[in-house]
Amino acid sequence: MSNTSSNQTSTGRAWVMLLLAGAFEIAYALSVAGSQAFTVLSWSISAIVFFLLTLYALSVALKSIDVGIGYAVWAGIGAVGSAIFGSFLFDQSLTLTQAFWLAVIIAGVIWLKLASSEKAQPEKPGLVAS
């Protein structure tokens, strides 16, 4: 009983960490872009800090969450987020066609990461972590 509820708590924490890792990854991507090849000090420091934060948060999250699912969520948040926030922050707008192909790539990487979790759960059709 107490074991089950503590497991649920740690899974909940792991998902919070995973979402944080995704947010840190967006901040990392934007900082790398803003650093202008590490010639702008403030953005460069921010890139290093968020790189370490995302690595840490992801490693904590993946202790309790299936690696394939965890990477899929994390990569999806990072890629979608940096496209959306990048377009506002750096005024980099995409045409509808370009946004479509970007969505294809992001769907591809999410799909790929999900497919990689099959090894952990052989022959199970459902990928929802139970």
Binding site: L30, Q36, A37, A79, S82, A83, Q92, L102, V109
Partner: peptide
Amino acid sequence: FFLSLALLDFDVGVGYAIWTSVAG
């Protein structure tokens, strides 16, 4: 560092997505 060099040219959303997914 090499991503930052590439992002001098690529839009961040595009460059980042290609980088992470081709690595995948």
